[in-house]
Design a protein around this nucleic acid. Structure first.
Lengths: 226, 226
DNA sequence: TAGATTGTTAATCGATTAACAATC
DNA sequence: TAGATTGTTAATCGATTAACAATC
């Protein structure tokens, strides 16, 4: 109570950004920082930073500011980075393999235990020390092992179906790279990496000015020839 | 005029989602759809859909709704998907290669022309028909070719520096996979794919309930032992 | 025409910003 | 203590939702 029982998406999306900047500051040897200074660095207002942090408790000190390492550590805990996670990757295509090969995740406690794919061309290959298993071994794996996070890197067409299988198998969270909006039961977390959406947003932004010039021009013409 | 000269981020982020759903509907043979139906499908209110679309003009028809193919086409144009883009990839690591290997982008007009990397182990390899060139060839490439979009898939430590080089070389947009917030001049578009931020958000969400139980418990204890 | 559904204006809600008392 | 800066409440701003007249 007193603490909001649920934190808005806008705040949650900023948490990893805080974590990143605090880690950089710590590495640079900065010991303390005020919300003012952190805001300048991150292009946020000091007010917003204090509001965000106070969703989770008062980690600062009046007249002093925030202790960088301490705040970094607390935000790490808020993000759940003080835990270890069992991760599997479903789909051993480009994305699945790129995630498996990225060593940084293991350092943060995200341990990849297994990989699965339908393609006979991929089954049996070794990716960063993990053997790719056939998809029909997935169900058995899920009953035999506790899986915290499943990385879903399969084509859109089968993403929902496999997602259901993962949820039935007791997975607690799905990191979804398939270009679909998944349906999940309450209590299972999802986060999407929609690469092509991201590229489309980029292409929108690089063309926005011309787009509105065209829209305005058409509008003015309409006004003159009603 | 009349049209907002600038569209809010919240709206822009939904545009690719509309595009995706409309493409699916078109494929499924759906000819027309009302904002009501589309909203149910996408978990948005009908009102919001109509507001979003009307940022760019009235593409519907009273009493009928929206023509699926037509609306898809218009949103595609808004996203700039009616253009062709020259793309280069800087960084031939896991992510750079995964992007290069993804064939879907070329179909949408994003054509990868060149790849660059510092690592001698990667220079000279062929990725999906593209030869990886040494990084010191980047500047010359930029003066000799028009580059619309640069995919930045390099370590955080050198991302800003390379980004500056890209901007000086006339790149119009940067698709950034490095875990940093880049500084770019007005007029150059950026969009970030912060994979580790995304994973951190997932881990936050899967732990949120327990987190607040702990916070509340600590708070109650404080109240009893003031 | 009557019915349906948009485009658009007005009302509400939530997130951001400002202000300031509490306090280190 | 005086100065600085937080934690928190109040004011503002913007995004979402509701309502309804316009119109196909």
């Amino acid at each position: 109570m007193g603490y909001k029982s649920r934190v808005s998406d806008a705040v949650v999306r900023r948490l990893p950004m805080y974590y990143r900047h605090l880690r950089e500051l710590e590495k640079a040897g900065v010991v303390r920082i005020s919300s003012q200074e952190l805001g300048e660095r991150m292009n946020l207002t000091a007010s917003q930073i204090r509001q965000d942090i106070n969703c989770f408790g008062g980690f600062g000190q009046q007249g002093y500011g925030y202790h960088v390492s301490n705040l970094k550590e607390r935000i790490g805990e808020i993000l759940g980075l003080n835990h270890e996670y069992h991760v599997i990757i479903v789909g051993a295509g480009n994305i699945g393999r790129a995630v498996a090969n990225y060593a940084g995740f293991a350092k943060e406690g995200f341990h990849i235990q297994a990989m699965f794919d339908v393609s006979p061309a991929l089954v049996g290959i070794d990716v960063h020390g993990i053997l790719v298993q056939p998809m029909d071994k997935l169900e058995a794996w899920l009953s035999a092992h506790k899986v915290d996070i499943a990385v879903l890197a399969v084509p859109a067409s089968c993403a929902q179906e496999i997602c259901d299988e993962l949820v039935n198998g007791g997975v607690r969270a799905v990191w979804n790279f398939a270009p679909v909006d998944l349906n999940l039961p309450q209590g299972v977390a999802v986060n999407n990496v929609h690469l092509s959406d991201s590229l489309h947003i980029l292409s929108y932004r690089m063309n926005e000015k011309e787009l509105f010039e065209a829209i305005d021009a058409a509008r003015n013409q309409d006004r003159n020839n009603p």
